[in-house]
Amino acid sequence: MTFRQKHLLGIEPLHPEEIRTVLDLADQYVDFNRGSSKHADTLAGLTQINMFFENSTRTQASFELAGKRLGADVMNMAMQASSIKKGETLIDTALTLNAMHPDLLVVRHPHSGAVDLLAQKVNCAVLNAGDGRHEHPTQALLDALTIRRAKGQLHRLNIAICGDIAHSRVARSNILLLGKMENRIRLVGPPTLMPARIDEFGVEVYDDMREGLRDVDVVMMLRLQRERMDGGFIPSEREYYHRFGLDADKLSVAKPDAIVMHPGPMNRGVEIDGEIADDITRSVIQEQVEMGVAVRMAAMDLLARNLRAKLDEGRYA
């Protein structure tokens, strides 16, 4: 078992072996969560603070549940309503919180790099729950776990990531993770929604869904943000759905057993057809939510072990 990280800020610093460690432990937590007694004392005595500077229901609930099931004391802070509005800087907020001795800090922030910045200023373990367009590591880990359980492997798969790559932290973390695990990654979407020089990331880029989805094992759809729909990046919602929305016709060129994924929340009829999303033979969207809790439990468990080991070291040194 290998997991040496102090924080979980992104997929970029993780070694493939560390990714496997998280996923193996998460597998155990999936069984645990399906049992009748969903409470453990793994994180007992530790304080977990969820700081969300950007609205989130699913991710926050998932982290909260993960912490509570492992016995941590969990506190949610709605940062949108807090002192940030009064002009306090991120670092001052971090220092204030740090003085309260939290052990696990779960942070989402609208700016890339903000979670890294915060992590430099606190003593506890920091989990990135999404920073700007940079990374969303637990999403990539839960996607990986979903794929591994559905396909029985997490290497040598053809995986298509479709939609708004440019503004997506989910896409970035997934490209990094799936690349580290040696899969073939295709990115499919209109060129206005592709980041610059994305071809240098070891991926294949397509602007045609039928070409991009041909013979893939996994179709990963991304959410298209409402504010990008009108005119600026794409001409209209209906043209986008026509060219890039996932429907039965476009999916038919993928492998017959290809799975369909979506990080949620979905825009039915914009990036994905409602019937595909609900087709339990193809869609693993509900499993992704289930894996999310398990992966977050695993990540917090591993970080807490490193944290405790460090504290013990300090005590006996």
Binding site: S112, G113, R133, H134, E135, P195, A196, R197, F201
Partner: peptide, 15 residues
């Protein structure tokens, strides 16, 4: 500046 580094870091970039 736009490019691979900017894309990796997820920062708004200029050509």
């Amino acid at each position: 500046t736009s490019g691979k580094f900017a894309s990796l870091r997820g920062l708004p970039a200029v050509s």
